[in-house]
Simulated scan of single mutants.
Amino acid sequence: MTFYELIWRGEGCGDAADLEEALAFFQELKPKTMDWQAVCADPQYSPTIRRYRSFEAFLDNEDEVETIHPTAELLQRFAPDGPDA
């Protein structure tokens, strides 16, 4: 089963079982005073998702299968208030 590690400000901050859960998790971290365009443009935040083939692969320090840098538009889709949040 695929495993997703979530990175925020260069540090691991959580995990998820699927991409949708990972994108929803970032909603809790976004500063309330910023929109996703500003967050994604600021290198200090750099929301990143690392996908591993399994949780065991993650624990065994295997390389990730892919690294995902979600766009502001993708993150905005999962905002609690919809696209205009």
Rank of each mutant, 00 (worst) to 15 (best):
M1T: 05
T2G: 00
L6Q: 02
L6C: 02
W8P: 13
W8N: 02
G10H: 04
G12D: 05
G12V: 13
C13P: 11
G14E: 10
D15F: 07
A16P: 07
A16V: 07
A17S: 12
A17Y: 05
L19M: 15
L19T: 06
E20P: 03
E21Q: 14
E21G: 15
E21Y: 06
L23I: 05
A24E: 11
F25T: 12
F25N: 10
F25G: 06
Q27T: 14
E28S: 15
L29R: 12
L29T: 07
K30P: 09
K32D: 12
K32G: 10
T33N: 12
T33P: 01
D35I: 02
D35A: 00
W36M: 05
Q37S: 12
V39A: 06
V39P: 12
A41C: 13
A41H: 14
A41L: 14
D42R: 15
P43Q: 13
P43T: 06
Q44L: 05
S46E: 05
T48V: 13
T48D: 01
T48F: 00
T48L: 15
I49A: 04
R50P: 00
R50F: 02
R50K: 15
R50Y: 07
R51A: 13
R51V: 11
Y52R: 03
R53K: 15
S54Q: 08
F55Y: 11
E56C: 08
L59A: 07
D60W: 07
D60F: 07
N61G: 03
D63Y: 08
E64L: 03
E64K: 11
E64I: 01
T67S: 10
T67F: 11
H69G: 01
A72C: 00
A72P: 02
E73W: 00
E73G: 03
L74N: 02
L75M: 03
L75G: 08
Q76F: 02
R77K: 15
R77N: 10
R77S: 03
F78I: 00
D81K: 14
D81H: 14
P83Y: 04
A85R: 01
A85S: 01
A85F: 02
A85Q: 01
